[in-house]
Write a protein that binds this DNA or RNA. Sequence first.
DNA 1: GTTGAAGCGGACCCAGGGTCCGCATTCTAG
DNA 2: CTAGAATGCGGACCCTGGGTCCGCTTCAAC
Lengths: 197, 197
Amino acid sequence: MPERKPRKDAARNREAVLAAADALFARRESPEDVTMADVAAAAGVGKGTLFRAFGDRAGLLRALYEARMEPIRQAVEAGPPPLGPATPPRDRVPALLDAVLCFKLDNRRLALALEEGGSGSPYRAEHYERWHGLLRAVLEQVPGLTDSGFTAHALLAATRADLVEHLAGDEHIPREAMRAQLANFVTGVLASSPREG
Amino acid sequence: MPERKPRKDAARNREAVLAAADALFARRESPEDVTMADVAAAAGVGKGTLFRAFGDRAGLLRALYEARMEPIRQAVEAGPPPLGPATPPRDRVPALLDAVLCFKLDNRRLALALEEGGSGSPYRAEHYERWHGLLRAVLEQVPGLTDSGFTAHALLAATRADLVEHLAGDEHIPREAMRAQLANFVTGVLASSPREG
DNA sequence: GTTGAAGCGGACCCAGGGTCCGCATTCTAG
DNA sequence: CTAGAATGCGGACCCTGGGTCCGCTTCAAC
């Protein structure tokens, strides 16, 4: 096991950076005007340290994302219905998408930064693959529904960070209205396949 | 009328740039490695000229986009069914989305560059607003369908350039399969509202 | 305490978008 | 045809921001 435990100061700095970045993304208007130098400065750390700890900008974003996402991941993998695995597919699909939507509403800047800055398409990101794989698998359980791979992509596309940002920020659609509209849309997509009886 | 006609050399250069950029986007793997300097060089023109003619990168992309889009715009605004205005809503919605999809398949790099580099969300771009407005209006004609604004966004999201690129490039889904899957998806969304009759 | 490895930090590098301004080209008036 | 002004040209230059480098510091194992 070549797993070396990190030095104390390294761990402390890592946390400081994470906290600072989190705060910065929350405060600043657009994610693209929170620069790596800003984060380093806010964390009271040199740029070198920052890049050593996270590799690059995308790495920092990913770390932040995973921290924020952890509770949802838990709820999806082993939690109670409607998110957990015991839920019947027709109920779980809307629940999953609602969870994604809520996450993006609660972490707008972060999600935005993650999806746009990610040096290449967001579709190659490991976290996207996970959501897509899961959603696809659940959709596959819905009788009569075809093209579950494509459908999963299309449904997830309706929760893209920049779209959510546009709806919330420019069109001023309130949170609950958005959730309702998404739920309605998802229901429609599912309803087109025959109900099981 | 303060509309001054442009000088001959200016017009010629503008065309040269457009052609060069078009060619470059077609050849290069990713749109982000076709740089403004590249375009200028390929067109045999100085950077100053390029920026004078188009303002900035987004301006160039927009110009390119509009040129490529023109025939489709015509077909949609005044052409025959299934794209033209005489088409019944239930048939026109899939036709419109199919047109968008095909456009993005035929102009992958360009569409990609336009959607991601666009200094801010693609949702504020004037061309998106046009497509969304049109689609929304057509959806509004479909009896029983609610939230046409949101639905229009969600359907368009299924044709986002980076998704199309992912499906075509990474998942190797052939053109016709993709068109069929999108059509199927759209049909599902529309079918959830009661058929008129 | 000593010592070598792990980590630190900020000066530095580089690419790429965008600007500037002296020079060239084109239009227009006489 | 020519002169002058207006318009446009081009590439050197600037600036921002991500990412690297390396001499110095700090930690922790002995």
